[in-house]
């Protein structure tokens, strides 16, 4: 539990560092990521090879931002069970076969792999955006593209309160385990009262935090300070990557490269 809480905060620390990607304007990173997500999901279910060049974006950002590989992979892995849950029945239902790189496989497996790749790419792009921008600056960028205040606020407050809720839970679990020696987990009879009390405690705590915010003039807008203007470098980043995404969408590079290498043109 404490590890999980510590990990939430890792992203804030990572986003605060100074490096080429972190210093980019948050709006530019947000727009690039949105464009990337649209391009990735726009590929058809059987188009696997043309998806592959898009892996460049997360890889390049990842290495420029000097992020810890293990942490990023761990988070991508968390999303996997959901995707596997969604795609696992495709091979069962879709038995038609296709030829891929000289192998014959069923179309069900193809769509399953395509879903997996799309998931890894989109989740990685999202994680990289948060880890290089920070939640507050991301909130400011969302406001710039006219996302309604109430949604942005909800996102920022949820992010803020997750750790409040987590802290309360960690404290309760510690108190429980100290009085329940040798017990694995929590007894089913205690689940109800534990969740109820967690809810009440976190209400209480959230109210105090909210009061502290109101006392310092909070009136619904999360002001995260002035942001630097969008510079030439920022525009170059957006334009460069957008061009790359469009090219990757329009042309099947792996196929073209394969044909070039094998001399079949």
């Amino acid at each position: 539990m404490n590890d999980a809480l510590h990990n939430i905060r890792i992203w804030d620390d990572l986003a605060r560092r100074q490096n080429a990607v972190n210093n980019l304007h948050p709006l530019v990173k947000l727009l690039t990521t949105i464009f990337y997500l649209i391009v990735v999901v726009s590929f058809g279910r059987y188009e696997i090879s043309s998806l592959l060049p898009l892996i460049f974006y997360p890889v390049v950002i990842f290495s420029l931002a000097e992020l810890p590989l293990g942490e990023v992979l761990k988070r991508i892995a968390w999303a996997m069970p959901f995707v596997i849950g969604i795609g696992i029945f495709n091979p069962v239902f879709d038995h038609q076969t296709v030829e891929l790189l000289g192998f014959t496989i069923s179309r069900g497996w193809l769509t399953f792999i395509s879903i997996l790749i799309k998931c890894v790419l989109t989740v990685a792009a999202g994680i990289l955006l948060v880890a290089t921008t920070g939640m507050e600056r991301l909130g400011a960028a969302l406001r710039m593209i006219r996302v309604p205040r109430v949604f942005v606020l909800q996102l920022l407050l949820t992010y803020r309160y997750i750790s409040v809720l987590g802290n309360e839970l960690a404290r309760m679990l510690r108190a429980y385990s100290l009085r329940a020696p040798g017990q694995k987990g929590i007894k089913r009879e205690a689940w109800g009262s534990l969740t109820g009390s967690l809810l009440l405690r976190s209400f209480d705590r959230a109210q105090r935090v909210y009061a502290a915010m109101c006392l310092r003039g909070f009136a619904g807008e999360y002001n995260s300070g002035a942001m630097a203007k969008i510079g030439a470098g920022d525009l170059g980043f957006l334009a460069g990557w957008s061009t790359f995404f469009i090219m990757a969408r329009l042309y099947d590079w792996p196929l073209w490269l394969g044909s070039l290498l094998t001399g079949v043109f």
Partner: peptide, 21 residues
């Protein structure tokens, strides 16, 4: 802990003045 809710001490101290624009 009820009063410090931003990601850095500086941002927390700036929270009030920023709200007053």
């Amino acid at each position: 802990d009820d009063q410090l809710f931003m990601t850095t001490v500086g941002d927390d101290v700036a929270f009030g003045p920023r709200n007053y624009q």
